[in-house]
Design a protein around this nucleic acid. Structure first.
Lengths: 394, 394
DNA sequence: CAATTAAATTCAACTACCGAATTTATTTTT
DNA sequence: AAAAATAAATTCGGTAGTTGAATTTAATTG
């Protein structure tokens, strides 16, 4: 609203059309109208503009309709019309991903390097260099680059573009957006990795109509993402939703953040592996950063009936349930979606989760929100940061 | 957006004008334009409609401007144009309040009666009878009644209009809106009392531009209210934000909700008085429902240096700080506002609150959100429920 | 091959907002 | 006392967006 009204309305509706196409694949104009509640006349006008701008094209081929009447003409986003660069920065690894207009990852490159030996200037220089190198390998994409997105673990101020703290860096309060923005001449988004996941999930057809949900991401640490009133919420200071550092206990085990009793200190990979190796005989290679293989091994043992291991996962589930109960009491979300590498053990935690919720949540509020796991795949963060960066495309 | 666009835009802008007038008192047209970012031409058009509809009138009297140029003409809401009925239902007390278009309470009546001996039918019958009796005493208001609002302690499903559970009732899952809606032929809003407070605070001039904040209400119990992206948030199941039943500890003292270790079980009046009377010599009249006088006495003793009492408040502050830390981690709000009868002891808790936050919150996130008390007055709930009911006025 | 059907488009009507120009009501200056 | 300056409020013309109804288009069906 406000200002030029009509023009802004059009811009918003146009964005809705693009989003509908991105989420629900090729669509006929009628369908779009039904999905975003606009009249056919308006859809015709908007799609005509979009076709004109080369953003959208009609899909030829066998008409998908079966009845009589004029067959519906499917239209689809023109993937090649714009590109975004997604950067995922984690401990000693930089992942560069090219996203197309549909939000798909079309090229990817992983660079192994030291991430913890930089100051602000050298870090930014490194990012610019790597990004430019990557883009120079994809010159057609470089031409139509619209925006950049950076995903990182840790605490992030999305409004300023600052990384407040991240396990991937040994410096605090680093701005990561300005230098890149300067170098590439296009907007740069910064986001916490769990918020990226929330974004990616909100773009899934099954979730795009779910407007209030919480994503819990279990991995090395535990993160959270909120979608509130249909939009990702990152708080006034841009640091929501650090679910992993809400508390299970005011005493309790040491968390990587320096406090005690955080959910993460019970449920994160490093916590589970630490507790397991205290009793079980496990390869001690790097206890603080257990590998996927090690975690899978631990999970398998629990699944095969190893009592201590399965007890550990049950306890983790219970703690998670406590944390979820706090969220349920505070936010009353429609769904809680658990994902991340840690869902490999969801079956082992599920009973504990519900025990924890039942034990902690006011009885009257139990059973309202749906709690379920979403299978993890490595590129969800990438899809999320690409979707986030694509919001700069108009 | 959507549908008739222009007309909905106008409706929204009109509502913004009304809201600006309600929050910032009498205003000149220029000011309104500046506040809600509309051109003078548009403001002229909208206010002309409003004057025409009798909703707004020009304020005559000494012109408030001092410079040269055409003096600004203040306009103001016409208080008498519409009325709403606010009902506050608490344990064995029914408070009826008439609100005018400005959101002020213009008449009030308190009825003492049994609230816990009803089934759904008799409760609704009682409410209708009391409301009708009250309205019949104010016939002019009855004529222009626009809507009703009901505020109640406990868990509320605002979308359905159901009270899921409340200490004021001994029945669960009661619908309170349908019968009243039928009887009065106008919309009825139901809301949790703490959410009312959040609403009332959001209408204060100093807070109306603060779009992400949390209200914590301390009284007999502990409640919470969220304002997210500028709007009160009550969650998908309408039960946000039960802050008092988030957890400090998985063990810990018994809470009124049936669980253990809820924040409320440390910080609510009943909890403080219970703990105090275990050690101190206090009038044992009704320990489970200490009166304002008893609580004030306890507060005074702590303020006068009674070691155990002041330690109790310090501990309560610390627990509160833990709970606030969870909210800060999850939501990253701009402000946390503590209010409710319990703020009488804020000074005694303040140090504890910050200790608790410092102890629980990830160091990097400490100190971002502003945390402060807002002085309590009895009619804040009323103002809130009236403001809420007024949203049905167009 | 005409009738039917449903998608897509066109068109006229309506309404909103805005910028610029104008009017209005004061104070200040001459 | 009249003219100039100033700032609020209004008027007006232009632009733009949505919609329902009518129309066109491209198939299927009998």
């Amino acid at each position: 609203m406000k200002k030029n009204d009509t023009e802004q309305i059009r811009a918003a509706n146009r964005a809705d059309v693009i989003n509908a196409l991105r989420v629900f694949g090729p669509l006929a104009r009628v369908d779009i109208g039904q999905i975003i509640h606009l009249s056919p006349a308006t859809i015709t006008a908007i799609t005509a503009d979009l076709v004109n701008d080369g953003i959208v094209h009609e899909v030829k081929g066998p008409s998908p309709s079966a009845g009589r009447g004029r067959p519906r003409v499917l239209i689809d986003l023109n993937s090649h019309h714009a590109s975004v660069l997604g950067i995922k920065l984690s401990i000693n690894e930089l992942r560069l991903m090219l996203g197309d207009l549909k939000g798909n990852i079309v090229a990817e490159s992983v660079v192994v390097l030291k991430t913890q030996t930089h100051d602000q200037a050298s870090l930014n220089a490194m990012l610019i260099e790597q990004a430019q190198r990557f883009m120079s390998q994809h010159p057609e994409h470089a031409k139509r680059l619209v925006s950049l997105g950076i995903a990182i673990q840790g605490f992030v101020d999305v409004h300023r573009g600052d990384v407040v703290w991240s396990p991937a860096l040994n410096i605090k309060n680093v701005n990561l957006t300005e230098a890149l923005q300067q170098a590439f001449g296009c907007p740069v988004e910064l986001a916490n990795d769990a918020n990226c996941i929330a974004h990616a999930i909100h773009k899934l057809p099954n979730y795009s109509r779910c407007n209030n949900f919480v994503v819990i991401m279990i991995g090395y640490g535990v993160g959270g993402g909120l979608v509130v009133n249909g939009a990702p919420y990152s708080g006034h200071f841009g640091a929501a939703a650090e679910f992993g550092h809400t508390k299970y206990s005011h005493e309790g085990p040491q968390c990587a953040c320096g406090r005690r009793g955080c959910i993460e200190a019970y449920v994160g990979d490093y916590a589970l592996y630490r507790d397991a190796s205290a009793v079980m005989d496990l390869p001690a290679t790097d206890r603080r950063h257990p590998s996927e293989r090690q975690m899978q091994k631990l999970t398998d043992m629990a699944q095969d009936g190893h009592a201590y291991a399965s007890g550990l996962f049950n306890q983790a589930g219970r703690v998670l349930g406590y944390g979820i109960a706090n969220i349920l009491a505070l936010m009353s979300p429609e769904r809680v979606v658990v994902t991340g590498p840690g869902v490999r053990a969801y079956a082992l935690m599920e009973a504990g989760i519900h025990e924890g919720i039942d034990e902690a949540l006011v009885p009257e509020l139990v059973g309202r929100s749906e709690i379920h796991a979403y299978p993890w795949s490595e590129d969800m963060t990438g899809k999320g940061i690409i979707a986030l960066a694509l919001k700069h495309f108009r």
